[in-house]
Amino acid sequence: MQPVATTFFFYFLSGLTVIAGVLVITRRNPVHSALALILALLGQAGLYLMLYAPFVAGVQIILYAGGIMVLFLFVIMLVNIEKSQKEEQFNKQWVVGILAAVALGVLFVLVYTKGKSLFPDRVAQLPEQSNTQQIAVMLYGNYMFTFEIASLLLLVAIIGAVVMAKKRI
C-alpha cells in the first residue's frame, strides 16, 4: 500500500538525479560537473530512503558526497583547469560512443521488460530491529571476511594514492 507522495517523490528524485547526471557529462567547467554530481548523489540518497535503506543513504551522503566529491574538487583545483576549459570538450569518437551507450541502455530496458515476470514484486519482511542494526549484524556476521578485505583494499588505496601523488617517490 503506497502513499500518494511515493509516486511524486519518486519522479521528482529520479528526474533530479537523471538531469544532474546529464549535467555532469555535459558541462565545460569541471567544477560545475562536480557540483552536478553532488546533486545526483543527493538525489540518489533520496531514492535509497524511499527504498527503505536509510543506512545506505547515510553512507552515500557521508562517503560519496562528503568524501569522494571533496576529493574530486581538491584535485580539480590542483589541476590546471583554465587551459582545458578552452579546449574541445568532446573527443573524436563521441558519435559512436553515444550510439553504443544508447544501445546498451536499450538492451537493459529490453531485458528488464522481457524478464519482468522473473522477479516478484512483493516486499520483503521487515524484521524487528532497525535497518542499521540489521546491516551491522550482517556485516559483522556473514560478511566479516569481505569487510576485512575491504579494509585492506582501503589501505592499499591509501598507499597507492599517496605514492602516486607524491612529488618525489
Binding site: I25, W94, G105
Partner: peptide, 23 residues
C-alpha cells in the same frame, strides 16, 4: 539504467579526465 547509460556516454565521450572519472 538511465544513469548507467549517462555514465557510459560520459566515459566514452568526454576529453577531460576529471569528467571521465566522475562519469
Amino acid at each position: 539504467a538511465a544513469l548507467f547509460v549517462l555514465g557510459v556516454i560520459g566515459v566514452l565521450t568526454r576529453r577531460n579526465v576529471v569528467i571521465v572519472l566522475m562519469s
